Amino acid sequence: MTSCHIAEEHIQKVAIFGGTHGNELTGVFLVKHWLENGAEIQRTGLEVKPFITNPRAVKKCTRYIDCDLNRIFDLENLGKKMSEDLPYEVRRAQEINHLFGPKDSEDSYDIIFDLHNTTSNMGCTLILEDSRNNFLIQMFHYIKTSLAPLPCYVYLIEHPSLKYATTRSIAKYPVGIEVGPQPQGVLRADILDQMRKMIKHALDFIHHFNEGKEFPPCAIEVYKIIEKVDYPRDENGEIAAIIHPNLQDQDWKPLHPGDPMFLTLDGKTIPLGGDCTVYPVFVNEAAYYEKKEAFAKTTKLTLNAKSIRCCLH
């Protein structure tokens, strides 16, 4: 018999989150649709729960009410004593943790798909938090293969000092899905179709896995975050240069030392320094102006996964 890495157990509980950011409308629209008619997301033997994560922000069509829901799922915020004085999103995070967690427990949901849009030209993107997770690498390989020839990129946010504390991190297997470009507060049919297909293929993978299909060893190309880059700023902290036209919409493309990065209003080009080629992502993302992030630098690498098969009882 072929030796293989056996994944822990079959997958039982899956959640699909929309509206973690209330103005990213593809996930909101799909989740609302699936709450009314969820036939397309159901798979035999699998509990799939669509869920609106930040209903107040969705109602106002804004990213958040008090603070970013997708950055506060750490033990400090989840452990705060519940009171009306807490920011709305912290209270909501505790409610979500109660419903789908608790985080880092045996009772937490197996998989959470968190649906997002970006204003950046990132196409279909899967966000991975753990480079050693054979199950998710296999799932992402399946999704990428199923979507081809449509490109699907994998963004690895594993980093020693950049801690995200994402909404989906309460699950055993957290999956971020990011599709763009799409303006905030807008629905685009092409973007919706791409996100819908990503979810379909992900659920198909889980179904095949649960039925005992063995997935042979595989490898995927990923883009691992190195650092986030702020806009150049003046002495008052105001933005002093904008994304250069040569960099705009060039997510995932190589940016070499000396290539144009920013452009000042008086026409001066600010190039990339250093001696390493990087791959920019979230270029000129609207939501990241407040976070002082013009783009993120990534490096390209390959992740390998062992063969996996479900432990059938």
Rank of each mutant, 00 (worst) to 15 (best):
T2M: 08
S3D: 11
I6A: 14
A7E: 14
E8A: 12
I11W: 02
A15G: 12
A15Q: 00
I16D: 02
G18E: 03
G18I: 02
N23Y: 04
L25M: 10
T26P: 11
V28G: 08
F29C: 14
L30K: 02
L30Y: 03
K32N: 10
H33V: 04
H33D: 06
W34K: 03
W34V: 02
W34E: 00
W34I: 01
L35E: 08
N37W: 06
E40V: 02
E40M: 03
E40P: 03
Q42V: 08
G45Y: 04
E47Q: 09
V48R: 01
K49T: 08
K49P: 00
P50L: 06
F51K: 04
F51G: 01
I52K: 01
R56W: 14
R56F: 08
R56L: 13
R56D: 11
V58M: 07
K59H: 14
C61Q: 09
R63E: 07
Y64Q: 11
D66Y: 12
D66P: 04
C67Y: 09
D68P: 05
D68H: 06
L69W: 07
R71M: 13
I72L: 14
L78V: 08
G79Y: 10
K80W: 07
M82G: 09
S83P: 07
E84M: 07
L86E: 14
Y88I: 09
V90D: 13
V90A: 09
V90H: 14
R91W: 13
R92N: 06
Q94G: 07
I96Q: 07
I96N: 07
I96S: 06
I96R: 06
N97C: 14
H98N: 12
F100S: 05
F100C: 14
G101A: 07
P102V: 08
K103V: 14
K103T: 15
D104C: 10
D104S: 15
S105P: 15
D107G: 13
Y109K: 01
I111H: 01
I111K: 00
D114R: 04
L115C: 14
S120W: 02
N121C: 12
N121V: 03
M122I: 12
C124S: 07
C124M: 08
L128T: 03
L128W: 01
E129D: 11
S131H: 09
S131F: 06
R132A: 14
N133D: 06
N134M: 13
L136Q: 05
I137Q: 03
M139F: 01
M139S: 01
Y142M: 03
I143P: 00
K144D: 00
T145R: 12
T145G: 06
P149A: 04
P149H: 04
P149K: 04
Y153Q: 10
V154P: 03
V154K: 00
I157N: 11
E158A: 06
H159Y: 10
H159E: 08
H159V: 14
S161F: 09
L162I: 12
Y164N: 12
A171S: 12
K172V: 04
K172M: 05
Y173I: 08
P174Q: 08
I177W: 01
E178Y: 14
V179Y: 02
G180F: 02
G180T: 01
P181Q: 03
P183D: 02
P183S: 11
P183V: 03
Q184S: 14
V186F: 01
D190H: 06
I191V: 11
Q194K: 15
R196W: 02
I199L: 14
K200R: 11
H201P: 03
L203H: 01
F205K: 01
I206P: 00
I206G: 00
H208R: 10
H208K: 11
F209D: 00
F209N: 01
F209E: 00
N210P: 02
E211I: 09
G212T: 02
F215E: 01
P216Q: 06
P217E: 13
A219R: 08
I220A: 02
E221H: 04
E221K: 04
Y223Q: 03
K224M: 04
K224G: 05
I225Q: 08
I225R: 13
I226W: 11
E227W: 02
E227Q: 07
E227N: 11
D230V: 08
D234H: 09
D234S: 07
G237V: 01
E238P: 02
A241C: 06
A241R: 01
H244S: 08
H244I: 00
P245W: 03
N246K: 14
Q248R: 02
Q250C: 07
Q250K: 12
D251H: 02
W252A: 15
K253G: 10
P257G: 04
G258H: 12
D259S: 08
P260I: 03
F262E: 00
L263K: 11
L263D: 02
T264F: 06
L265E: 04
D266I: 03
K268F: 09
K268I: 15
I270T: 06
I270E: 05
P271T: 14
L272D: 03
L272I: 09
C276S: 13
T277L: 09
V281P: 00
V283W: 01
E285P: 03
A286L: 05
Y288F: 15
Y288C: 14
Y289L: 11
E290A: 15
E290G: 15
K292S: 15
A294H: 01
F295R: 02
A296K: 07
A296M: 09
K297Y: 06
T299K: 10
K300M: 13
T302P: 04
T302C: 06
N304V: 12
N304P: 13
K306P: 14
S307R: 10
I308T: 05
R309N: 08
C310A: 14
L312D: 06
